[in-house]
Design a protein around this nucleic acid. Structure first.
Lengths: 239, 239
DNA sequence: CCGGATCCGAATCGATACTG
DNA sequence: CAGTATCGATTCGGATCCGG
């Protein structure tokens, strides 16, 4: 079955042979947040056919990217191997690049706790966070709610409510400094083309608890600079 | 045709929808080296079906990743848009990750000037290069020959012989400081698990002109640290 | 309910042939 | 040179089924 290779001796080619097939990198994206069971992955990727999920998990185990967690209780739990975790720079780079192409969501598009967690990681600015006071946010986007703790240049995200309790980090104690709900327009705040004040004004962000001025800290901590995007570029020469 | 999306509102998903199909990132890899004509791309990707190449180029033009170069002489020339060039971090991250999974080449695997150029870029260490004296290498791998100039933290690669003359940079004048030919084992030199001296000893590298000791500079300038790889990782728990 | 395996029509890919 | 056209081989998507 592995005859589906590109016939080149090259790192990029090797990489694309290992994780270039449909759904593979999205499974990795979710596993970068934490170990997951088959059903968790399925719920996080609602449109994946069940046979494809099974096939990808098997291929990635054969490739040394994914493994079944040792010390599993009842039923298998999938986690990334160290080599699988080394895909994090790839996924973050892809997320930043894709961010510039995002428009309004299509009808039926979903936001999942894992995808939003990774989105926050792609936008996270450790240097800025290290210079700012520690903060504890509660972020609501669509029907996903996350507890987002930023301290000393480190980012910790924990899902709230309808998700499974996280393996590693528990819920932080105490009340968050700021609770807010945001629509898709928050991407313009992340991009810096909309100030937090303007976002509140226009209803893109609703502050549910805490000082709205703290949104400035959020915007400095989570930022993606858009240096190029589709549409901006000059048109081609016709044939 | 665009109904082939993943149904998520997420940057990673958006990115994979744009450049996740077969061959797309390899076309981008080659275009990152320079603008190319249809036949150049085909020669650089010998196994790509011609209809797929045409389809990918069309899709990527619609997505604002590729365009036909303005001011074209005779026949179209494809180049990356600024947004397409913004894929460079993605391709470099993929190349570094894939590097750790490379083994001996399969029979029939080819090395192309563009793939080797990008491989050098993935391994390039600007900081180390900035601290070392400027160097001018001529590198032969398989039947590809490149002129590789490193100066002040910058890297310039120009193909020799059977490739088309580059658009931007011309051949540097004068003789290279070091000319050498390497086999696939050079990846262990890049990884740091084989010293240049041992590589010369074992025949992995043959010095054709210049001081063999200059290979140490090469190895410090082009390096990929392998922190994880398949096989190293602990085996999974059986079902 | 969890963790898949099986089956089948639809879409894509690969190889080759052909054309302006 | 720069692609289209065609067609068999794979893969994907959607649904169902099954053992624990």
């Amino acid at each position: 079955m592995a005859a589906r290779n590109y016939g080149q001796y090259c790192g990029v080619t090797t990489a694309v042979e290992l994780i270039g097939e449909r759904w593979a990198l999205l499974i990795v994206r979710d596993l970068l947040v934490g170990a997951r069971r088959y059903t968790d992955l399925k719920r996080g990727l609602p449109r994946i056919p069940t046979n494809i999920l099974a096939a990808r998990l098997k291929e990635m185990q054969d490739s040394g990217i994914v493994r079944r967690a040792p010390f599993t209780g009842r039923g298998p739990i999938y986690e990334l191997t160290p080599y699988g975790r080394a895909l994090e720079p790839v996924v973050l780079a892809l997320g930043r690049w894709g961010f510039a192409a995002m428009r309004e969501p299509d009808e039926g598009d979903v936001i999942t706790p894992d995808s939003l967690t990774m989105a926050l990681r792609t936008a996270f600015q450790p240097d800025a966070a290290a210079r700012l006071p520690p903060m504890d946010y509660e972020v609501h986007v669509a029907d996903v709610a996350l507890r987002v703790r930023v301290a000393e240049g480190r980012l910790d995200v924990v899902p709230l409510a309808p998700a499974l309790p996280p393996v590693g980090g528990d819920l932080p104690d105490g009340e968050p400094d700021l609770v807010f709900a945001a629509g898709p327009g928050i991407r313009e705040v992340i991009a810096g083309s909309l100030t937090p004040a303007a976002a509140v004004e226009s209803g893109v962000i609703r502050v549910l608890a805490g000082e709205a001025s703290l949104l400035d800290l959020f915007a400095r901590t989570f930022h993606i600079e858009i240096t190029a995007s589709p549409e901006i570029d000059t048109p081609a020469v016709p044939a």
